[in-house]
Design a protein around this nucleic acid. Structure first.
Length: 516
RNA sequence: GGUGGGUUCGUAUAACGGUUAGUACUCAGGAUUUUCAUUCCUGCAAUAGGAGUUCGAUUCUCCUACCCACUACCA
């Protein structure tokens, strides 16, 4: 049987990195077993709908290289009209609203659900009342017979209310005192007594929309989903979902479930939230997001992360290959991924390790690619330099960076002359013993041929050794002249890249500025 | 409060009854280098607590503690 999994986000805001991980695990599972990865938009909450969130979610997935087989077309649009490739369209639940009511009413007809006429205010009052007594109000076997619903009202009354009122709901009638036995792909055997469950609303007359539970089960059934891989927050409603499949008579084709643990704050306790990112200085979202109030949330992409690094670190947060390999591209992940190596406990996100992953990918990038990103970032300052020159600089310096956006700070002196000289370094290296020989060194350098790293290194070294000059002081002085600071790359490396004339100018400028 | 889930170095994790409890990140020290960075080496550091099962428990069972999620006409 062809395996089919889905990622079913709710467009209520930007996709959290935990959500990306859920999508990734679904994708990896589907690709490994040669199945389908489907996107479905669960927008049954008209109140919480956020414009732009759907596009954001799809763009985030695309950035990561998580490409759906079904539900979203090549242009990244959610499919609305059925076709051979997308037979279950539309993939937005708000556009499927017509199909859910009959399933809910079918349940009523079979005695597995009922109409409920209690108002939100009435239920609220009941909850408050219970709370005052330090109890919890639950709409279930114990209370349903004393509430306003088709179980307690006369047939005529029900028919009348169904006709005249527009705020009734259909509630699932949780069976009494049943032990629901479940099996989770990650957590194993779980049992729950049905008496602790409540009669969940399945369908709302007010907006003619199903709630999550109904829409989710119906669509998973209709879309022939074989595995549901979702976040741990859904584990408490798993018994309800089992009971729903049973009531519909769909247990034969019921999907298998896998509940993923949550991503936790790096420090302290609780699940990772947007605030943690702001507070601790790392992104929580894949892409930058600006909400309706103009509040900006940073994104991994805008912070300079490579999508490969982001995917890699997410994959290893709650899963491991069982080997010591840590670096995987998404395609390398596909054959080794396995649901039974997913960890049960929540994972605290470690921003330090995230940087390390990016550094590893930075090192693997070609010079051309790095130059291209560097130019995107700092093009204005690099415009008068050739790609070849920038490439040489990048090759020399990339090992020092975690992100391409650190390049300018690391390499600026290759593109601009220093305008001042770090006083501490001047004090340390610009000594009399150097001053007296600096002209000889300068002249010697100008006559090195060819002006390559190897020649400069060897000849300069020999010169200093033969004359028994202080190696450290001479070399560091030269670096100070070129960079303006006492640290930086190898002197010969810089000279070879910058060229004889530029070095000549810098030495002259430095002697001029510092005085003898 | 109730229900469910979880608990190995600071963090991510390995060890599916027998190991000096491994690896990576971080941190500390050292080596290399003309400086810085890189690289390499070394080190610090964990089975939440208590019973039980067993010749033997990180691993199985129970209790306690702590953490998390859920407890809406939200997903």
């Amino acid at each position: 049987m062809r395996r089919r999994v889905r990622f079913a986000p709710s467009p209520t805001g930007p996709l959290h990195m935990g959500g990306v991980r859920t999508a990734l695990y679904n994708y990896l599972y589907a690709k490994q077993v040669g199945g389908d990865f489907i996107i479905r938009i669960e927008d049954t909450d008209s109140q919480r709908f956020v414009p732009g969130a759907e596009e954001y979610i799809i763009n985030s997935l695309r950035w990561c290289g998580i490409i759906p087989d079904e539900g979203v077309d090549e242009n990244g649009k959610v499919v609305e009209v059925a076709s051979e490739k997308h037979p279950h369209a539309p993939y937005r639940q708000s556009q499927r609203r017509g199909i859910y009511r009959k399933y809910a009413e079918d349940l009523v007809a079979k005695g597995f659900a009922y109409y409920a006429f209690d108002t939100a205010e009435e239920l609220d009052a009941l909850r408050k009342e219970a709370e005052a007594k330090k109890e919890t109000f639950t709409y279930n076997y114990a209370t349903r017979m004393s509430l306003k619903n088709s179980l307690t009202l006369s047939e005529d009354e029900v028919a009348k209310r169904l006709e005249s009122e527009d705020h009734w709901t259909i509630r699932f009638k949780i069976p009494e005192n049943r032990v629901v036995v479940m099996d989770d792909l990650i957590r194993g055997h779980i049992e729950v007594n049905s008496n602790v469950l409540d009669d969940k609303v399945l369908w709302k007359r007010a907006d003619e929309l199903p709630t999550y539970h109904l829409a989710n089960i119906v669509d998973d059934h209709l879309m022939e989903i074989t595995e549901v891989i979702r976040g741990e927050e859904w584990l408490p409603s798993l018994p309800l979902h089992y009971l729903l499949y049973e009531a519909f008579g769909w247990t034969e084709t019921q999907p298998r479930f896998a509940h993923l643990s949550l991503l936790l704050k790096p420090d302290g306790k609780g699940k990772l939230s947007k605030r943690d990112g702001d507070r601790l200085g790392f992104p929580v979202f894949p892409l930058k997001w600006v909400n309706a109030e103009g509040e900006v949330s940073r994104g991994y992409r805008e912070d300079g992360y490579f999508p490969e690094a982001f995917v890699n670190l997410l994959a290893l947060l709650g899963w491991n290959p069982g080997t010591e390999q840590e670096l995987f591209t998404i395609n390398e992940l596909i054959p080794v991924f396995s649901l039974d190596r997913v960890v049960k406990s929540g994972a605290k996100f470690n921003p330090e390790k995230a940087k390390w992953f990016n550094q590893e990918y930075l090192r693997k990038k070609s010079t051309e690619e790095l130059v291209s990103i560097f130019k995107e970032n700092d093009g204005d300052k690099l415009s008068s330099f050739s790609d070849k020159y920038i490439g040489e600089v990048v090759d020399l310096m990339k090992e020092r960076a975690h992100f391409v956006n650190e390049f300018w700070g690391l390499t600026w002196f290759f593109f601009e002359r220093p305008t001042n000289y770090d006083p501490a370094s001047v004090n340390k290296f610009w000594k009399d013993e150097v001053k007296v020989i600096i002209h000889k060194v300068h002249e010697f350098i100008m006559n090195i041929n060819p002006f390559t790293k190897e020649e400069i290194e060897e000849q300069l070294h020999n010169l200093i050794m033969e004359n028994e000059w202080p190696m450290g002081k001479v070399m560091n002085t030269l670096r100070l002249f070129i960079v303006g600071e006492g640290k930086g790359p190898g002197v010969a490396d810089m000279m070879a890249i910058m060229g004889r004339e530029e070095i000549d100018s810098r030495i002259k400028q430095a002697i001029n500025t510092l005085g003898e």
